[in-house]
Amino acid sequence: MDIEGFVRDGHVVIRRAFDADVAAACRAVIWTALRSHGIDRADRGTWRIPKVEVECPPGGPFAAAAGGAALLDAVDALIGAGRWRAPIPAHGGMPVKFPSEDWPGGTGWHIEGNWWGGEDYWTDVRSTGRGLTAFFLFSDIGPDDAPTRLVSGSHLFVPPLLAAAGPAGMSGTAVAERLRPSVLHRPVTHATGRAGDVYLLHPFMVHTATWPHSGTTPRMMSQPGIAVPDGFDLDGTDPSPVARAIVQGLTLAPER
């Protein structure tokens, strides 16, 4: 794994973090959950809504997807062994996107927040509560399948804004709005890959959902946070790549 690339770019992908059989079993559970929304796997006429949120139960194939050695080793390397809360919750709320030209909602640049602030999720410069964001690809996601768009290196420009906000922090959407246009013009990466791939994102990675979904099959991807309840120390004593990136970012002037 490219640790220095993660510090520089804010993301890394673990290819084949879980195998195709596990991915297929996860999709089967997701399709079962979609039945309560009147969506039938065999009847494309029922795929009318561009995005449907479903709840998937813990355990089973989702536990297997989140428990692979390569993935766990990568999380240990980026956060530090014993510092994050296991297991990784690859199940839970699942936004399933269907092929559609209609706007699915929920698009817009943001970083993930760690607590609910009334109208949005908020976070602070220590990233209290979140060590990484993980994208679990349960279906193949190509460039036509509404892949999430990541602004490479954007995580380095977020710490000065959050530091200025103090312990109260800032909402994830407000962070991105304060960064425009100086950061969002940077090169982007699309979270594409095969079912079984997992992207690991720095908690301050600026990203957005995209549309339309002009592919032919539903896009199935979960995006859980990997919890670090106490956040990161920023006095230079924390050797984790996540903390190193925050400290590096604090040397930059706030971008507006």
Rank of each mutant, 00 (worst) to 15 (best):
I49C: 12
P50K: 10
P50F: 07
K51S: 08
E53K: 06
V54L: 06
V54T: 03
V54M: 05
E55C: 02
C56Y: 02
C56G: 01
C56P: 00
P61T: 01
P61R: 01
F62V: 04
F62Y: 04
A63F: 05
A64N: 01
A65H: 03
A65C: 02
A65R: 05
A66M: 09
A66G: 12
A66W: 05
A66V: 07
A70V: 12
A70S: 15
L72H: 13
L72M: 15
D73K: 15
D73L: 10
A74E: 10
V75K: 14
V75I: 15
D76K: 09
A77Q: 09
L78D: 09
I79G: 09
G82C: 11
R83Y: 11
R83L: 15
R83S: 06
W84G: 07
W84D: 04
R85C: 11
P87G: 14
P87A: 15
P87H: 14
I88N: 07
P89A: 15
A90C: 13
H91Q: 13
H91I: 12
M94F: 13
P95L: 10
V96W: 12
F98L: 14
S100I: 08
E101Y: 13
E101P: 09
D102V: 12
W103M: 09
P104R: 12
P104S: 13
G105Q: 13
G105N: 13
G106K: 08
G106W: 07
T107N: 12
G108P: 03
W109I: 07
I111M: 08
E112P: 02
G113A: 08
G113S: 05
N114M: 04
N114T: 10
N114L: 05
N114H: 07
W115P: 04
G117Q: 08
E119R: 15
E119K: 14
T123D: 11
D124Y: 11
V125L: 11
S127T: 14
S127G: 13
S127I: 07
R130A: 09
G131V: 12
G131M: 14
G131F: 13
L132W: 08
L132Q: 10
L132E: 09
T133M: 15
F135A: 09
F135I: 10
F136N: 04
F136Y: 08
F138E: 06
I141E: 06
G142P: 01
P143R: 06
P143A: 12
D144A: 12
D145N: 07
P147V: 04
R149W: 01
V151Y: 02
G153A: 00
S154D: 00
S154R: 01
H155D: 01
L156H: 00
F157C: 02
P160I: 01
L162A: 05
L162T: 00
L162F: 03
A163W: 02
A164D: 05
A164N: 04
A165H: 03
G166F: 07
G166T: 02
M170C: 05
S171L: 10
G172C: 06
T173K: 11
T173A: 08
T173C: 07
A174N: 04
A174M: 07
V175S: 06
R178G: 05
P181I: 03
S182A: 05
S182P: 00
S182N: 01
S182Q: 03
L184R: 02
L184K: 04
